[in-house]
Nucleic acid binder design. Sequence first.
DNA 1: TAAAAATACTCCATAGGTATTTTAT
DNA 2: ATAAAATACCTATGGAGTATTTTTA
Lengths: 297, 297
Amino acid sequence: MDLRRLRYFVAVAEEASFNRAAQKLHMSQPPLSNQIKQLEKELGVVLFERTSRGVRVTEAGELLLEEARRILVQIDQTTRAVQRVGNGEVGRLTLGFVPSASDEALPPILTDFRERYPEVELFLREMRPNLIVQRLHAGQIDAGLLYLPLEDPTIETECVLREPLVLALPETHPLAAEEKVELRAVAREPFVLPARYAMMPGLHGQVMEACREAGFSPDAVQKDVWLMQTIVGLVAGGIGVALVPASLRNLRRRGVVYKFLSELSPTVELGVVWRKEERSAVLASFLEVAKHNFKNT
Amino acid sequence: MDLRRLRYFVAVAEEASFNRAAQKLHMSQPPLSNQIKQLEKELGVVLFERTSRGVRVTEAGELLLEEARRILVQIDQTTRAVQRVGNGEVGRLTLGFVPSASDEALPPILTDFRERYPEVELFLREMRPNLIVQRLHAGQIDAGLLYLPLEDPTIETECVLREPLVLALPETHPLAAEEKVELRAVAREPFVLPARYAMMPGLHGQVMEACREAGFSPDAVQKDVWLMQTIVGLVAGGIGVALVPASLRNLRRRGVVYKFLSELSPTVELGVVWRKEERSAVLASFLEVAKHNFKNT
DNA sequence: TAAAAATACTCCATAGGTATTTTAT
DNA sequence: ATAAAATACCTATGGAGTATTTTTA
């Protein structure tokens, strides 16, 4: 049984004429007659009564017409549905992200994605970076947003936001009035440091590296803090100073001022991460949108 | 979209391997790969993840697999159903018949038909011959059983039972003891005659013809009787004699004896009748069975 | 390196075209 | 006589085969 023949059959049945059906099908009449004849031969059933002024379906043809229509519609719908799934236009995607991602990186990505793929169900879950990696491996989330780099051979990463580190100072600090600050100026100050290792290796590493290049090693009054809000809160309380991503300024926390460094600013990168071997079309759609929203500030 | 490709796709998905699927499909691997590739191209969707030890369906492939199975099953069922309708194995058939048909002609036909076409719904309606013709024209019955001939260009007929006429005598009749009777012997007796014209032209005609050949014209004590039972009843009541189809002997009506004629017996024909242009497969099935049960007694 | 899929080519079956005949009103 | 379907024949697309290469675990 051939779909082409089924379509031809429906056309002939609907037009009640080989000639008209052939026109409608943009072909000539003889091959159409042939195809119908072969369909009848294959089924072992006469589908049309041929008269001198057209054609009429038999009882068996009546049944086939009904079923063929149903089948053709179903094939049409299936085609569309498969295409939409294949193009990542429908489905679901679960995304894990560190809280800071929602300051700057995530909003435009989500706006864009929801507009372009309105039929994808998005599940958003705020979580710690190490949990993102763990859940990614477990297949419980499809992608994550955290500070790069992430060294894992089974995980692929792509930067979506590169931003400079700025110095967070208590507003009571002597340097609070300056336009820019040289990092060396706070070499003796107590530092609030972000978590390292599996937690936020990227951020921690960049902070340490920046201090090292400025010629000192920071004196940690508090370390392994993983929430940026907490770091800023501690700075506001006068506990110490900190180097934080520039987007943190969006917090507008009272008691804290942010200063660009006068030297070349160290930068940190926030990126999307996903399983290397994952081939889901929805993920591909999301990654495309995410990459398209790369921002370098 | 091509059913062949759909079948190929299902095979590859189920075997999770082009090689094994090709074996199962009794073809070689390269054209199978080709067909799948073309299917993917046509849909614009990747259906398989190719690995070095086989193949795995993608999300879109998963959906297509489900739907393709459903579609293929539906096509299979449709094919069978259409074939059964086309072969007259399912459907309904309404049959009109004169009461005498149930004596001899109808029973074997019905037995046979019900055995060979158990899924055809049979509707049986006893009716007068003229009503059979009328209902046939009106499309209210599909076939009829009545005494031939029937002159009607739009109606086709086929004899299913040819039987001799026998002489019905009251058992008190002087000739009741004879083995056979010469028709001329009852030339002076009162006759009970069957209806003529549209009613039963065949039977009436044969009776008149037989008498004419025997050299007399029957004296009708009662005419236009259309039920054979009634004729026999009148004979039993001593009203007169009658020529009736031999199968009437099955009635075993008391008070009546049946005598074969010593001359060459006139015969009557009971036949199936149907609309000439009717092409229904169920009717064809019925006619085939009816013709196969032709009996010449 | 071994197993599986992809590529390159060749061949032929068949869908579709044109010209014509048949059929039924 | 006309209109529609059937038949005959031809061409060419594309499905399937064989041989071979590429890929990845």
